[in-house]
Design a binder for these strands. Structure first.
Length: 452
RNA sequence: GGCGACGUAGCCAAGUGGUCUAAGGCGGGGGUCUGCAAAACCCCUAUUCGGCGGUUCGAAUCCGCCCGUCGCCUCCA
């Protein structure tokens, strides 16, 4: 397939001579609940992975947790729990939420705190190669030593704002340098190291974990666009310096960011909607459909109405799947599969892929009305849906609410009224229920209701 | 200030030199079904692609300028 690579700023063909793909996706720092921007990233890379698997590749998928950093430490202190407990709590919740979003589990979920030896091995190697230096228990990476620093973000050192920060207490030789290892501060978690007790800096964990679990050159390294600089830039700098210039990844793939209103959704800006909240309002399929309705590299604006529109669109797909097949003309499916593949081949063009799904639905419904054989077409619909992680599960939010027996009772009374042609009273029951948020649908098989 | 992305129907969103009088979804209009509805289905719904110039036989697609929005420039998926 063709995929856009941030490093070369080009769309290139993804190849794998041995049929296997090594994928590393930057996960979350589990200091707080995940928001739907994280969900969008997970779903996009889940779809990329599912598509590659559908095309016959064997994918090894690694997603990390950065479970030690300033925010983890501050968050744990606020809550009066250990950093480890904070991480555990949020990781468990995150994995549950990703399950609920039908995101396939990664093969490995490494955590920074469990990779300290590998982290230290890389830092030592960088010091040996003179790409890093230790100062009073801190270790910093020499940014200016790496000629091509800035290549991922397509910027050069002199175009960078001179405001590179020096935190109080930092002992950098150059403001651009960044910490690989931070000396212990009182009360903070720390590990023994050749440079004294301390903890890893931000970017080094990903270098360590990708090297440890996937090796020197990844096929795909993914994450949100906000990670391009500095996180991935620094990862490249470290990893390639450590590996004597071997490329860290064949493809750098970055998804566009989710917006809420006019701004990017972000934990630090405080404008976000949690995954939990979104899942309480919308079905998994509708959320996935929403995230996939625009191209993954474009920004997407989250609004209730936009997700709701997908909820409605889903009904049409479910109807196409529910129709019973006749024995008439066979609805052939080769063109749909072909069009779906073509869309996905082109830098994961999910909006076009979805258009194929809706075209297929329309044609299934048409064929169904004409008594055609739609069984195979429905199978194809399910198959390509599953590549997008869409299960098309029936939405039955009508079962377990407390009022259910009373609603059923009213429906029964109304059925008798209708039988007696007392339509005015029957309609008034229906209208009143509608006002209360319960809509009734009469059909030859009886009356169904659902919560609105 | 620097770098980059984007601006397509009421809304969301594909398309990036001819097949575009522009895919698909939501909404809207009409119809089928229904006691009436709802749901569902079917049909219709941009001669036009932020503005102005230019290149070209031909531009939504390439170039320039302008207007507007967003992202990044060491917290971020």
């Amino acid at each position: 397939m063709n995929l856009y690579d941030t490093l070369t700023a080009k769309t290139k063909e993804l190849t794998a001579t041995d049929g296997s793909i090594k994928m590393y996706v930057c996960g979350i720092t589990p200091y707080a609940s995940a928001h739907i921007g994280h969900a969008m990233r997970s779903i996009i890379f889940d779809v990329l992975r599912r598509y590659l698997e559908y095309k016959g590749f064997s994918v090894k998928y690694v997603e990390n947790f950065t479970d030690i950093d300033d925010k983890m430490i501050a968050g744990a202190a606020d809550m009066g729990i250990t950093v480890q407990d904070l991480a555990e709590k949020n990781i468990v919740a995150y994995l549950d939420e990703m399950d609920a979003l039908n995101v396939k589990r990664a093969d490995i979920y490494p955590r920074a705190t469990e990779e300290i030896p590998k982290i230290q091995e890389i830092i030592s190697g960088l010091i040996d190669k003179d790409y890093a230096y230790a100062v009073q228990g801190d270790v910093y990476y020499k940014v200016r030593k790496k000629e091509d620093y800035g290549k991922l973000g397509h910027r050069t050192l002199d175009t960078m704002r001179v405001g590179a920060r020096i935190e109080p207490g930092e002992l950098k030789n150059d403001p651009l340098d960044f910490a690989l290892w931070k000396a212990e501060k009182p009360g903070e978690p720390s590990w023994d190291s050749p440079w004294g007790k301390g903890r890893p800096g931000w970017h080094i964990e990903c270098s360590a974990m990708s090297l440890a679990y996937l090796g020197e050159t990844l096929d795909i390294h993914g994450g949100g666009q906000d990670l391009v600089f500095p996180h991935h830039e620094n990862e490249i700098a470290q990893t390639e310096a450590f590996n004597n210039g071997k490329p860290m990844a064949q493809f750098w793939v970055h998804n566009g960011l989710l917006r809420l209103g006019e701004d990017k959704m972000s934990k630090s800006l405080g404008n976000f909607i949690t995954v939990k909240e979104a899942l309480s309002k919308f079905s998994t399929d509708a959320l996935r459909l929403f995230f996939l309705s625009s191209h993954y590299r474009s920004p997407l604006n989250y609004t209730n109405d936009n997700v709701l529109a997908q909820e409605r669109a889903l009904e049409r797909i479910r109807t196409a799947l529910a129709g019973s097949s006749g024995s008439g003309t066979l609805l052939t499916t080769a063109t749909y599969k072909k069009r779906f593949d073509e869309a996905m081949e082109e830098d994961l063009n999910t909006p076009r892929a979805l258009a194929v799904i809706f075209d297929l639905c329309r044609d299934i419904n048409r064929a169904r009305d004409e008594g055609g054989n739609i069984a195979e077409a429905q199978e194809v619909l399910l198959t390509i849906g599953s590549v997008l992680g869409l299960a098309f599960a029936a939405s039955d939010n009508s079962q377990n609410i407390e009022a259910a027996p009373f609603i059923d009772l009213l429906i029964n009374i109304r059925r008798e009224l209708r039988g007696a042609k007392q339509f005015a009273v029957a309609d008034s029951i229906r209208d009143n229920l509608t006002e209360l948020g319960v809509s009734l649908e009469d059909s030859p098989e009886g009356t169904k209701w659902r919560k609105r």
